[in-house]
Design a binder for these strands. Structure first.
Lengths: 203, 203
DNA sequence: ATGATAAACGGAGATGTCTCCATTTGTCAA
DNA sequence: TTGACAAATGGAGACATCTCCGTTTATCAT
């Protein structure tokens, strides 16, 4: 343990780097609370953290990565919650478990709406599709595929469950979720209900 | 006709303005073909068209509006095709008409993939949701809602058809369509089939 | 024709993203 | 302790978006 660095020939994070990291996180959080994630530029964050822009960009290639770092703990918790629920409720029907997972995610989405939008916005600006690149969505995709496989056995449906899960994830992305929330005026619960009914054919 | 301007107290577009408009369109088309829509900046277009950046931005608030102008004719044609089809096939089943409209749109999407992506990209960067702001998607939304109402009478489904249409339009957006096309490796026909099967419950 | 006027123009500049690289600094081995 | 080296730094600068505003110009009424 004390010798990890020797054993693996890997240097530990330099002390000044660790300090800067924390200063960045503090600065970002402060500015985000002050003006909203969308309004804050990387430059402002660098200035507030008293570091050069280059330093900031080496650590976080864009604002999305910074936002992701800021919610990393919550993401881990979310997936722990999901795993726990799924393990403790193996006996429940797949559709009920599906709804529960959806519900857990939507709660998370409501809590971290701004930062999550920050993540997705720069993902789509910088590197194609949020679906592909965000680890969050990849992991969710796997979870939903598994549930769908129980509900729609591959031999009984013309739709590939990976595709079905892709469609579901579209509905959970910030832009579409917030659109339903703000433009169409749905509550979180109503959105859940609608999504559920579309993806679980209620025979 | 010769007196529209007098009658309506509206000046006609100035000659130099009209010339510039055409120069912009030509320049944009040339550069787009040369390097791809995504790689070309507004500055480059302004330079190529031999006008100042301010002039370009007054006419088109962003690259998306320019792209939209470039495909406006095709958009009109698309909706004419859809209207014609729907009028000539009133007797067909709603699901068949649904699939046909989907097919017409996907053909359009394949033809104008780059420019359409250009439109949607700046829509989402600049003004929230492509769903809301693009006239194309608004009109499609209406068409799909009408078809859904035939297939799923409001009293028989828990899902609002406006919501269903919103979900469908998500699947038709550039980023998700191209994701299926390029990452998942589906052909246009396979995507059509999958979307159809998800939104038309095949009892 | 011509002058008043609204429209169009262009380019400077504010702000933002992101890269590059000369310089500094912490760390580890000797 | 020290010096070599990898890691980290910061800021200049390349480009991009987009705005603002003083200047030019086409058009219409007279």
């Amino acid at each position: 343990m004390t010798n990890d660095k020797k054993i693996f020939h890997k240097r530990t994070e330099r002390r000044d780097a660790a300090e800067n990291r924390q200063r960045i996180l503090d600065a970002a959080l402060k500015l985000f609370n002050q003006s909203g994630v969308g309004q804050v530029s990387m430059n402002q964050i660098a200035t507030e953290a008293k570091i050069g822009p280059g330093t900031l960009y080496r650590r976080y290639r864009n604002k999305g990565e910074l936002c992701l770092d800021l919610i990393k703990d919550n993401v881990v918790l979310l997936f722990e919650d999901i795993d726990t629920y799924l393990e403790e409720n193996r006996e429940e029907s797949p559709s009920l478990r599906f709804k529960a997972v959806l519900s857990l995610f939507l709660r998370f989405r409501e809590n971290k709406a701004q930062l999550l939008k920050g993540v997705e916005d720069s993902m789509s600006t910088n590197s194609g599709n949020p679906l592909t690149n965000s680890p969050i969505y990849n992991e969710l995709h796997q979870i939903f595929v598994n549930l769908f496989e129980e509900i729609y056995p591959p031999e009984s449906t013309r739709v590939k469950n990976a595709f079905r899960a892709d469609m579901l994830l579209l509905a959970l992305r910030s832009d579409s979720y917030l659109f339903q929330r703000e433009v169409r005026g749905y509550s979180s619960e109503m959105i859940l209900e609608q999504i559920y009914s579309i993806f679980i054919s209620n025979k």
